[in-house]
Amino acid sequence: MRLDSHQHFWEYDPKKHEWITPEMSRIRRNFLPADLSPLLQDAKIDGCIAVQADESQRETDFLLDLASQNDWIKGVVGWADLKSDQLDEVLDRYSESKTLVGFREVLQGRDPAYMLQEEFIRGLRKIGQRGYAYDILIFPKHLAATLDLVKKCPDQRYVIDHLAKPYIKDGEWKEWKKAMAPLAERELMHCKLSGMITEADWQKWTPGQLIPYLEIALELFGPERLMYGSDWPVCLLAGEYERYWEVIEQFTSALSPSEKSKIMGDTAAKFYQIP
């Protein structure tokens, strides 16, 4: 199964999506399944994982509703406040959903110490006990704290979104690799080859600028813990869907068919437990 492990849907609202700044005018509109479906078909991709873009329970319900109407949305990574005293009740509400496969918060906007709070760790353990995966949305400055978190919750399935957003525009990779390496040693830690072009120069990036980061990710995680993700429609700020997809297709063309299949869908299907 070929899967896009990371994309978003939204009905644009200036208040709810205040993170979409004026310079991001390209994505200041609705993006729904009808917009993505032809792109996936052109790329011969069987389905996708829809990931939260708004921190609300309403967002989780919105994505689950879209998935119920489109069987090619294979899984939903929703939002929940892991620190909430009502987390058990929230999880109980979704206990019958087979489409909800994990959760995510926008940790990149918080101090690294946030994820090491006792309440957060307690919540992370709760979702893990119920079989949910956790997407880690962070910047490189969060990597040390993420390692501490993983040590406290070693049995949780994790995936680092967007390679932890390395400084591709500046061409820096040595410190990022050094911080990623101990995380990659954890067998339950995975990584998404997503969100790269928006960390590069939006107008001037080239495939060659992405290759060092792709090679390092492959070296650290191997194809069995890497998954392709478009980060559509955010990727449109720096390039069309097919342009980034072609970069990953070209990069994986040097691998064996089995290794390429893992990155292009098998890893994501296994990680998110998609049948």
Rank of each mutant, 00 (worst) to 15 (best):
L32H: 10
L40C: 09
T21Y: 07
D135K: 02
M115I: 13
F31A: 00
I197Y: 05
A43K: 07
L147S: 06
P166G: 05
E89P: 00
W232C: 03
A200D: 05
M264E: 05
R157A: 12
P182V: 04
K44S: 14
G78Q: 05
E118S: 15
Q209Y: 06
I138A: 06
K152Q: 15
F103Y: 11
E118N: 15
G109I: 02
A254Y: 08
E175M: 12
M227V: 03
L36R: 02
K141N: 12
W72S: 11
G128M: 08
K174Y: 00
Y213W: 09
T267N: 01
G208D: 13
I248K: 01
H8A: 03
G47A: 13
A184G: 13
E118L: 12
D42V: 10
R58G: 11
Q273D: 14
W79P: 03
Y213H: 06
D4Q: 00
A43Y: 05
I127L: 06
K98W: 11
V247Y: 00
A200S: 13
P140A: 07
G47K: 09
V101R: 07
F120M: 05
K15N: 11
R110C: 10
A80L: 06
S68K: 13
P112L: 14
I160F: 02
A184D: 11
P33D: 14
E242M: 10
L64M: 12
K270N: 13
I45W: 06
L64Q: 07
P38F: 08
W79L: 08
R122K: 15
C48V: 06
K178V: 00
H6Q: 00
L91W: 10
H142N: 11
A144E: 13
C48E: 01
S194M: 02
L163T: 01
N30F: 12
R186M: 13
V90M: 09
G78S: 10
S95R: 15
D201H: 08
L124C: 07
A43L: 09
A181P: 03
E215N: 12
M180N: 02
I73A: 06
K174R: 14
S5Q: 05
R243G: 04
G239I: 03
K141F: 10
G123A: 08
W173E: 10
N30V: 09
L226H: 08
R122M: 07
D13T: 10
V234A: 00
Y213P: 02
E259A: 15
S25A: 15
G208T: 07
P212T: 11
Y12L: 01
E175P: 00
I49F: 04
G239P: 01
P154G: 10
S68N: 15
